[in-house]
Design a binder for these strands. Structure first.
Length: 822
RNA sequence: GCCCGGGUGGCGGAAUCUGGUCAGACGCGAUGGCCUCAAAAGCCAUUGGCCUUCGGGCCGUGUGGGUUCGAGUCCCACCCCGGGUACCA
């Protein structure tokens, strides 16, 4: 008997070569009778080498891709690199190495490892977002948005990261700190490029209903968009300038409480604040307050718990519903960025207004009664009181509608919707990004670069250091060009695009990656879009996923997508983090597990299968070196058992007449097929799927086989290999071929035979007062009465009911009998 | 504060959707044994706690209540951990 030793370093390259030589995972855009499936993992940012999170996401994605293929789908499973971005640029600043060079090195390392992992990628569609053949089309999309008025420039107060020396999108500011480097963010007034994502707020919200995403991700997107329904109500100020009354609209979600307004508050950044206070006794105090607020950190101001502060403006506005004069204040709890930068304050029914009124001795009035009779402030619902005879007594929700109607008729307000979402700030004052294809001509103004002059290639520069303006501004020869409209001198836009722009459309490019004439042929998108299964980290729940959805909708509206494509990702799976010793892996903690080291030691199948076995893939999981060892033992045992069986057992089919051991093995095999299939098709329960294959193998060890026929054993083992293929493809393919001579990836996914899933007897649980006292084999078709008799006859049941009254007997057919005694 | 997750053996986890099989699959670790000159590898057995006359008994899924013949699973209240978010009018 030959000694069989599991050697992944021999097995894995051998099968990888077959797949590469035969282009096994490549798919064409030609017609194909099979249904399509587009399986995509979020593209990696190539920096250094792949980490354990990459191993997890591509192990999950590859399992799904293999399962879909063998379930009869034609699967698109591509790979690319999100190659622009700050880390490479900062590296360049430190070392002088061009970002292109360090990026190329990182990409080469990623490619090497991805191939060593045996991920089933169609490499013909590979690209990186920093390649001109890709960003040419990023620029083209920018121009489409620009021409449609969806890309625009405006001066605005923007969040500025003093460390990265660049502006940030709202979404990139976390708790007042830069999402990337953690530096405290400042506010600056600058002219910047924006995408009009707010135009799509409602559709981005509504269409969440149409996609199969985890509920918590949908909730995060909903909260981020932050839609509020209410009314805009106009308050008039007449005493600041008697000749010219000024109207100040406010947004409120509670127009039903208008009669409870007792003061009016403006944000310190409101442009009229200083003008309003001018000439009053409060002028100096207002000036001091506004300056004081401006000097405060974003952090300090964001603290909801600190006491409310503000100062009077010395002016009043008129409440449009009752003509009352309300004193005006400036206070930092009112934000300029939301609504109109001014609010009506209703201290009786709003906690913040209440806190301010308490602090400054302002009147507090109840206008909605609380059915529970609680104290003010009362933010809940109830009948209106102390408002107006027309509305008093009405439920406040009904009163709200009528008051808005009345405001509308009187021209004093109207129903309105407000969003928390703001436009996407896309310009960055950085080098390593996609150039914005816009020119500035003294005669013609802002001119888009003609499409036939794309790409606007990123020039080389000597100095990458940020100086508050883009490093590109130093590339004079590049900046100075001619205007395509008048032929006169023009200057190029020197800002580059946020890298989230690059990744907001890459999934479409994969469908037609080689196209030199267009970003894509709509027919290619019709073939593959939307992505059927998108897989990635939950950290992109708002940024990337919202931007990709916006791009898809905008491009669909502009007629660039085939009919019916409104969402990029039909199904989303968010995987959990891999930690080590309960903590996030990081170089500073020294707890980094390198995928390359694991693969080198145990082979990629062990690494991949272990990471899927460690726990539910959507949850965080802690890496264990001992656990990896266990997976290696399992794969060794499976492979060795298969190799030995292939050599020693005659290649018979399963026998027609099954002995009890045959039946046991066949049942277990079909049970495993059923289990793995449902674990793959429903939730991605790879951990229990792999456990089922382990159970099947445990039935097939030489010691446990008993009198099972060789054909039965071969069937059981080849089924185990077949089911394991999505998780450990090399080992499974090798074992399967030894047993059957066939290529497992060309085999259809096995189907469970229902006849083996049913049994003619079952284990009847016999309980007394809910405690299990016995278990017996009972015929599957037995009647309730038969089961009752059977249970009552069991000695241990009788021992526990002896001398007691049987109050009742509960019979659950197919499961149990419970005897209730007193 | 609010919104999502989640608390089960020494550890990762299973069963939770649809209440029903002495809860604990599968794996790790541990203990004992076989094999070996020895080791590695492999194989076998045991492994929630306590008690036991070895038949079995009692207790156990964060805490306290409740519903039910029966609760890890459903309901109410609370505690703890993780993530998101933050004066959004």
């Amino acid at each position: 008997m030959a000694e069989h030793r599991y050697d992944p370093h021999e097995i894995e390259p051998r099968w990888q070569k077959v797949w590469a030589d035969e282009h096994t995972w490549e798919v064409s855009n030609e017609d194909d009778p099979r249904p399509k499936s587009y399986v995509l993992e979020m593209l990696p940012y190539p920096s250094g080498e792949p980490h354990i999170g990459h191993l997890k996401v591509y192990s999950v994605g590859d399992a799904v891709a293999h399962f879909h293929r063998r379930s009869g789908h034609r699967v698109l499973h591509p790979m690319g690199y999100d190659a622009f971005g700050l880390p490479a640029e900062n590296h360049a600043i430190r070392t002088g190495q061009h970002p292109r060079a360090s990026t190329a090195e990182a990409i080469a390392e990623f490619q090497r490892q991805f191939r060593a992992w045996g991920i089933s990628i169609d490499w013909t569609r590979e690209f990186a977002t920093h390649e001109p053949r890709y960003y040419r089309w990023t620029q083209w999309i920018f121009l489409q948005l620009f021409n449609a008025g969806l890309a625009y420039r405006k001066e605005a107060a923007v969040k500025w990261c003093p460390n990265d020396q660049t502006v940030l999108a709202n979404e990139q500011v976390i708790d007042g700190h830069c999402e990337r480097c953690g530096a405290e963010v400042e506010v600056r007034q600058l002219e910047q490029w924006f995408f009009r994502i707010t135009d799509y707020a409602d559709r981005l919200l509504d269409d969440l209903a149409a996609i199969e995403w985890p509920e918590h991700v949908k909730i995060m997107q909903r909260n981020w968009i932050g839609r509020s329904e209410g009314a805009e109500v106009t308050f008039r100020c007449e005493d600041a300038d008697p000749a010219h009354a000024i109207d100040y609209p406010v947004f409120t979600t509670r127009p039903d409480t208008l009669f409870g307004a007792t003061f009016f508050v403006m944000a310190p950044e409101h442009p009229d604040v200083l003008r309003l206070a001018a000439g009053t006794e409060h002028e100096q105090a207002v000036r001091d307050y506004v300056n004081h607020v401006a000097a405060e950190s974003v952090e300090a101001r964001g603290d909801t718990d600190r006491p409310k502060t503000g100062v009077p403006l010395g002016r009043t506005v008129t409440n449009p519903v009752n003509g009352e004069r309300l004193p005006m204040y400036v206070a930092d709890y009112v934000l300029m960025e939301y609504g109109t930068g001014a609010i009506m304050a209703v201290p009786g029914h709003d906690e913040r207004d209440h806190a301010f009124a308490e602090a400054y001795g302002l009147p507090i009035r109840r206008v909605v009664s609380d059915p529970a009779g609680g104290d003010l402030p009362y933010p809940g619902d109830g009948p209106l009181v102390h408002s107006h005879p027309d509305f008093d007594g009405l439920h406040n929700r009904e009163a709200l509608r009528r008051i808005v109607d009345w405001l509308d008729r009187e021209g004093k307000g109207h129903g309105s919707v407000n969003y928390r979402l703001r436009d996407w700030l896309v310009s960055r004052q950085r080098y390593w990004g996609c150039p914005i294809p816009i020119l500035y001509c003294d005669r013609c103004g802002m001119v888009p670069v003609p499409e036939d002059q794309l790409p606007v290639e990123l020039p080389d520069v000597q100095d990458y250091k940020p100086k508050g303006r883009s490093p590109l501004a130093a590339a004079e020869a590049w900046v100075n060009t001619t205007c395509p409209e008048c032929g006169g001198p023009a200057r190029r836009e020197t800002d580059t695009m946020d890298t989230f722009v690059d990744s907001a459309w890459y999934f479409m490019r994969y469908c037609d990656a080689g196209n030199d004439a267009a970003a894509w042929d709509p027919a290619a998108l019709a073939r593959w879009m939307p992505v059927d299964q998108y897989i990635g980290g939950v950290e992109h729940a708002i940024l990337h996923l919202l931007y990709a959805r916006f791009f898809t909708k905008a491009l669909a509206d502009l007629g660039h997508l085939p009919e019916g494509i409104q969402e990029p990702f039909a199904r989303l799976f968010t995987q959990g983090m891999i930690t080590k010793d309960g903590a996030k892996m990081s170089k500073s903690k020294g707890n980094v597990v390198s995928p390359a080291a694991i693969v080198e030691r145990y082979g990629s199948d062990t690494a991949r299968a272990y990471i899927l076995f460690i726990g539910p893939p959507d949850q965080d999981a802690d890496w264990s070196d001992d656990g990896v060892e266990g997976m290696f033992r399992f794969l060794s045992r499976l492979w060795r058992t298969c190799a030995e069986a292939a050599e020693e057992l005659p290649a018979d089919p399963p026998p027609d007449n099954l002995n009890p051991d045959d039946t046991r093995v066949m049942r277990k095999a079909h049970w495993a097929i059923d289990k793995v299939t449902s674990d793959m098709a429903g939730r991605f329960a790879f951990n229990t799927a792999i456990a089922a294959v382990m159970e099947l193998l445990n039935e097939l060890t030489p010691a446990k086989r008993g009198a099972a026929a060789p054909g039965t054993i071969r069937f059981g083992l080849s089924t185990a290999a077949s089911l394991l293929f999505p998780f450990a493809p090399h080992t499974a393919a090798d074992a399967y071929q030894r047993l059957t001579g066939e290529r497992v990836w060309e085999e259809p996914w096995p189907a469970a035979d229902a006849a083996y899933l049913e049994t003619d007897t079952f284990e009847l649980v016999c309980q007394v007062n809910g405690k299990v006292r016995d278990r017996i084999e009972a015929p599957t078709g037995a009647s309730e009465d038969e089961l009752r008799q059977l249970a009552l006859a069991q000695p241990n049941v009788r021992a526990h009911i002896d001398g007691l009254d049987v109050a009742k007997v509960v019979v659950v057919p197919g499961k149990l009998v419970n005897v209730v005694v007193r």
